[in-house]
């Protein structure tokens, strides 16, 4: 399916227009973080089992929702009978941050507009977005890179969910292995690669301050949205006209 996507679009901002990085490059770049995702997927499988979901239900949720944070949150709210509306509303709130990530990819993959693009956006996660946006900033936009990375992480999440459900506590202590730090480390590396120099100082400082403040004042992961908006709007106010 991904192979049928047309050649990468001409990039509007970042040179060079055609990136050499394709599906395989995306998949390869995703492998390190896939190990971290596998661990969290296993934990999700274990918790889903304990919460009383069937294997088919846990697998279905991972396959069609495919958003770790909200899946964990849903398990936390799970009762009998299932509180459908609270779970669905919470899921929307937890995943609202993807709106910004999706919008931020527009300068690279938004044009020319293709239908298949919107199908592929199902695979947008924090990690597949972060890997791709890092690649876009360095080498220009390649939708294939996103697809390669995203599908690798998707398959990993499915395997991990089933593994955790069936095998139980195979990963005893992610913290002792430092795997909880894997996400911070990956996001930090991507930030370094993304850095445009001194002009990022203002938006990043504003984003950090706003996110830290919001994390103290607001529940859930609203801090991502607050910080992301505050930092980027600060840049827009300074640079745009």
């Amino acid at each position: 399916m991904p192979e049928t996507t047309p050649a990468p679009p001409a990039s509007s901002t970042a040179p060079p227009a055609v990136s050499s990085a394709g599906l395989a490059a995306g998949a390869a770049r995703a492998l390190p973080i896939a190990t971290g995702i596998f661990v969290y997927g296993v934990v999700f499988g274990v918790l889903a089992h304990q919460t009383g979901l069937t294997l088919a239900e846990a697998a279905l949720m991972s396959a069609v929702v495919y958003a770790g944070a909200s899946q964990f949150t849903a398990l936390g709210l799970w009762q009998v009978p299932v509180p459908a509306l609270p779970i669905i509303i919470t899921t929307l709130v937890v995943n609202l941050r993807h709106l910004m990530m999706s919008a931020s990819m527009h300068p690279w993959i938004g044009r020319p507009r293709r239908r298949s693009l919107f199908g592929l956006l199902f695979f947008l996660t924090d990690e597949s977005w972060a890997l791709s946006i890092g690649e876009f900033a360095r080498n220009g936009g390649s939708l294939r890179f996103f697809v390669g990375a995203a599908l690798t992480l998707f398959v990993t999440w499915q395997l991990a969910t089933a593994t955790g459900y069936v095998a139980g506590n195979v990963v005893q202590d992610p913290v002792a292995l430092g795997l909880d730090f894997a996400f911070v480390a990956v996001f930090t590396v991507l930030l370094v690669c993304l850095c445009r120099g001194r002009r990022d100082l203002l938006p990043w400082a504003v984003a950090a301050a706003a996110a830290i403040g919001a994390s103290l004042a607001l529940p859930g992961n609203w801090y991502i949205i607050v910080g992301g908006l505050a930092g980027s709007l600060a840049a827009a106010a300074r640079d745009g006209r």
Binding site: M100, P203, A207, I212, G231, A236
Partner: peptide, 28 residues
């Protein structure tokens, strides 16, 4: 993002967005 003709300000906003989101995910 594709609905609107991208003004300079909108473009500056979209370009600053990835870094700001990543900082916000890590900092707290």
């Amino acid at each position: 993002a594709g609905r609107f003709e991208l003004s300079d300000r909108l473009r500056a906003w979209l370009e600053a967005l990835p870094g700001a989101i990543l900082v916000s995910m890590v900092a707290p």
